[in-house]
Design a protein around this nucleic acid. Sequence first.
DNA 1: TCTCCGATATGTCGTAGTTTAATGCGCGGC
DNA 2: GCCGCGCATTAAACTACGACATATCGGAGA
Lengths: 243, 243
Amino acid sequence: MNTRCQNCPLRTRDIFDPMTDREIAFMQKFKSGELEVDAGTTLMMEGSNSPQLYTLLEGMGLRYKSLETGERQVINFILPGDFIGLQAGVMSEMKHSVEATTRMKLCVFDRKMLWTMFRDHPDRAFDLTWLAAVEEHFLGESLAILGHMEGIARIARAFVQLFDRAAALGMIKGAKMPLPYRQQDLADALGLSLVHTNKTLKLLREDGVAVWRDGSLNILDYKRLCSIAQLEADREPMTRPLI
Amino acid sequence: MNTRCQNCPLRTRDIFDPMTDREIAFMQKFKSGELEVDAGTTLMMEGSNSPQLYTLLEGMGLRYKSLETGERQVINFILPGDFIGLQAGVMSEMKHSVEATTRMKLCVFDRKMLWTMFRDHPDRAFDLTWLAAVEEHFLGESLAILGHMEGIARIARAFVQLFDRAAALGMIKGAKMPLPYRQQDLADALGLSLVHTNKTLKLLREDGVAVWRDGSLNILDYKRLCSIAQLEADREPMTRPLI
DNA sequence: TCTCCGATATGTCGTAGTTTAATGCGCGGC
DNA sequence: GCCGCGCATTAAACTACGACATATCGGAGA
């Protein structure tokens, strides 16, 4: 529910409550160009200083950290509408990498767009802080999932969340959504081994709950998936609509 | 390293690079009061809408989410200097709870302070976005830790990080720092069971690495602790100095 | 067509970590 | 004084998951 702070014109906004079309259109006016990249492209590299910010228009990708051990922690999956690289704007160094897993079409912003926002459009600048807070919220959720749920529940929850987001984006065709990732990506996101991820996927498949094949996820029994994920099937969906 | 964006006066800032004294003093001018609370007080409750923001002046606390199962995910430990409740400022609902584990002294800001910042002081407003990005960075680190490290390494890393932060705050007396939490708190932060946390603490104690007793942590062998934590002993310390 | 490689698939086995349950210990209340 | 409560401690039984080993499948390239 949108509310207005009594004392100021800044609009507080919940995570289920994306920016309006007008607000989005407004921000897009400050873009510095568009960009297309192929699957496999590394858009941002941790440690580097990328002076660009993006919103994803089409395609999918993922955000990850590399560990000293050579392993990888996938932080989240990036879907159309997501804002990419806020860190690149406010920090002197990227803290994670961003990789395209399909061909991606992006809207590019220059870092100076940030200054324009903060100087001339405090309400939109406020939205950027909101975006960062939303990111933080979802990371907190992930933390709880990795800390407290067993493998099958983690996978089920990932599926439900991705499915809800895809639904909000109109990417569902008959309970089927594109999910162009490797099993290793999911494993790295959920803190599981590849092998165990694979076996758990088999379980879900054989139980007629969900089938993930050839880059597309087919939810056969949403209700049961939710129950495995320890979610109510009629909860407010986790659409995570950013910008 | 501080750098200036070529096109704007906003200062990008790394996580090791806290706000200057001048900047802090400036923001403190907008406080609406001070507050003292006892140990055990719940400062903010998830689901509620707290119109206040705080910086912690003295004492310690923790930030956590409650799970449907009744369990708890501790998101992080709160030390003096930390900014609390940015979410409360930008979201219509808190996504986590904040609890004092000792008596705390706080600097209180009204939500309207945010509007003042965004309207009149874009550079300080920018710092708030930076703060949120820093939070996000550290959550990503925690995610990687929960996803990929075994119990003893998680505990060792928590100790090293807390020790480094305490050092930056001048809270160390002879390798000893205050750590006023219960073992359950640490377990909930690291996604371990209380029992296993306890056993691992015993191990560290008996190996002469670190002793945590009566709310104070004594690091006996910092080097070894770092090696268990899979950290270089001479790395740039994770001071996490926020405001 | 053959080979190579990346991804998926599947079985076995060892173990880190959970669960459960019992015990001790200090402290505040009555 | 005794009781109850919160927290730390320890032991024993059980299990989810990782490590390792191997097999299969399909696409790219020579």
